[in-house]
Each structure stands twice: as structure tokens, then as C-alpha cells.
């Protein structure tokens, strides 16, 4: 499938989930980027990325500049931040209500997304103070625990990861352990649903929540890395130039962090009661929405894995 997907496969035996397989299948765009000039790679990246397009393009621009030593200390990029805020708004007003059987807040979304695009924080602030989205019912037995990826900028990331490897790009870990990024990583229970509201309210009141932070660093001769905080979490680009052309290009997206085969979702699912499939599927839908993949996802019940 050209657009890629996250596949969740479950085996239920003796009333329990006995086996879990989570895989992130995404098309490798690196062959389209290798051999390109700087201008060429920017044009190709801007063609290929529909979601978080500003974040992807900014990461590419910063990584390219950093490859020749032009580094960027952490700074809020207004366009990237607004892009992230619009994603949070979508999630909060449209996705969350649908998941809990409520009416999506269509008109409110259309109105508020314009405020965000224009940076009109005061209007959003006033509206957020007045609105009340019904709470998602808290399940008493919720035991989803995420291992939050700490805040990083390009320089601190270089201390931890001197270079990005292909293996790391597919299965990123923090200190050797899978970790989650984005809204769900800020809260340790299923209450992570409200992290979206908190981020929006923080931005609306004039603060600068994590989304929109960009930075870059030179990691080796001809190699630049950029980190960008998107709505879904940390995005990393690392580009290697050779003779003015792209020798290699590595991207780690939030989806790779959040759908690691041994991450919080896989850990949570193993051992869950498998008797009531409908109930478990609804919970999984909630969790996946918070982990927020940038590709479609599927769930399969299998006899064996």
C-alpha cells in the first residue's frame, strides 16, 4: 500500500490476548531523495508529505543547512507550531467526540481552525474557557502506561545518538527501551485524551507548548540533523551530503516511536481480557487515536502469530 499502514494483530486464547504483533509498514522514500541536489530534495519532500507538510519541509531545510555547519538553536517556528495546534484542534473537536459516540464539533472546528491559522490566540482562549467537551469515560481498569520520550533538541540528541542508523529509524528507542512521543507521552493513563485540550489552552493563553520547536546540528562532515516537534511528537531528519548531492537521508517520525513492536501499546495489549472483542477494540481505537499514527491502521484477530 503506497501510503503505508500500522498493523495490529492479536491472538486470543483462554480468554486472554496471548500474542501481539504491531508493525509499522511505511514506504521508504529515501530512494527518491538520494542523488538529489538540495533544491531537488526539498521539492520532492514538499510533494510527498500531506500531513505535517510544514514540519517535514522545515526539518529538511534545517538538516540540509546544518550539514554545512549552519546550525539552528532551539526556536519556535510559528508556521510549524500553528500546524501542530490545528492538528490538536482536529483531534479534540472531531476525533474524540466520534470515538465516544458524541457529535463532532464541526462548526466550532471550522471557526477555531481559522483563529489558529491566523495566530489569533485570544479568540481561541476565550472560546476554550467557555466550552466544555464531555469527558471521555475513565475506565477503572485502565493500565496503559507510556514511557515518555524526554524533550530533546538537536544538540542533546547528538549526545545520545551520534548518528541515526537504519535500524534506529525503524525501531527507535530511548536508552534502549521503546518510548512514546506526542500528546500521549505527557500523561501516563488513558486520560491522555485531555492533553490535547491542555496544549491548546496553553498556546491560546500565550505560552509556547512543545509543538513547533525546531533545532538542528551538524553531526559529522556533510551530515546535518534537524528535530521538529509536531502534534504527533518528535520528527527527526538526518541528511548526508556528498559533493553537493544527497548521499543518504534518514527520517524518524512519531509513528515509528509510538507503534514500536515492543512499545507501550504492545505491552498493554498482552494479557488483556480477550473475551469481549468489541470492548477491547473500542479501547484500542481510543489508544491508537492518542498515539496518533500518520498512516491508516488495521486490527486483525488471528488464530496464531
Amino acid at each position: 500500500m503506497t501510503t503505508g499502514q500500522v498493523r495490529i494483530k492479536l491472538v486470543s486464547s483462554d480468554g486472554q490476548i496471548s500474542s501481539v504483533q504491531i508493525s509499522c509498514e511505511r514506504p521508504d522514500v529515501t530512494p527518491c531523495l538520494r542523488g538529489q541536489t538540495k533544491a531537488g530534495v526539498l521539492q520532492r519532500i514538499s510533494l510527498l508529505y500531506a500531513l505535517c507538510g510544514k514540519a517535514q519541509l522545515r526539518a529538511a531545510q534545517l538538516a540540509l543547512a546544518a550539514s554545512t555547519g549552519q546550525e539552528c538553536l532551539p526556536i519556535i517556528d510559528t508556521e510549524v507550531q500553528r500546524e501542530a495546534m490545528r492538528e490538536h484542534l482536529w483531534h479534540y473537536l472531531i476525533v474524540l467526540p466520534e470515538l465516544s459516540g458524541q457529535t463532532p464539533q464541526n462548526q466550532e472546528f471550522v471557526r477555531a481552525v481559522k483563529w489558529i491559522a491566523e495566530g489569533r490566540r485570544a479568540e481561541l482562549h476565550e472560546w476554550l474557557n467557555g466550552t466544555q467537551l464531555a469527558l471521555i469515560p475513565q475506565d477503572e481498569e485502565s493500565s496503559f502506561v507510556s514511557n515518555p520520550l524526554p524533550r530533546l533538541d538537536a544538540r542533546s540528541s547528538r549526545a545520545v545518538w551520534p548518528r541515526l542508523t537504519e535500524a534506529f529509524c525503524r525501531y527507535p528507542t530511548w536508552r534502549g527501551v521503546p518510548a512514546e512521543t506526542g500528546a500521549i507521552s505527557r500523561i501516563n493513563t488513558i486520560k491522555g485524551t485531555h492533553a490535547r485540550f491542555d496544549v491548546l489552552r496553553s498556546w491560546a493563553s500565550g505560552e509556547e507548548p512543545n509543538g513547533g520547536m525546531v533545532s538542528s546540528v551538524n553531526v559529522a562532515t556533510g551530515v546535518g540533523r534537524a528535530l521538529v516537534e509536531t502534534a504527533r511528537g518528535l520528527l527527526m531528519h538526518e541528511v548526508e551530503l556528498d559533493g553537493g548531492r544527497i548521499a543518504d537521508y534518514k527520517i524518524v517520525a512519531p509513528t515509528e516511536w509510538n507503534f514500536h513492536p515492543k512499545g507501550a501499546l504492545a505491552t498493554y495489549l498482552l494479557g488483556q481480557p480477550g473475551g469481549d472483542r468489541g470492548k477491547l477494540e473500542r479501547r484500542i481505537a481510543h489508544l491508537v487515536a492518542e498515539l496518533d499514527p500518520c498512516v491508516p491502521w488495521t486490527l486483525e484477530w488471528c488464530e496464531t502469530l
Partner: peptide
């Protein structure tokens, strides 16, 4: 990831 595809609108139904 984040790849989108061009599609053409054939009918509009509200949202």
C-alpha cells in the same frame, strides 16, 4: 508516512 493521494470530488454530502 504522511503520504497523501490526490482525489477528485464526485459528490458533496455536508461535512
Amino acid at each position: 508516512m504522511c503520504l497523501g493521494i490526490p482525489m477528485q470530488v464526485s459528490e458533496v454530502e455536508g461535512a
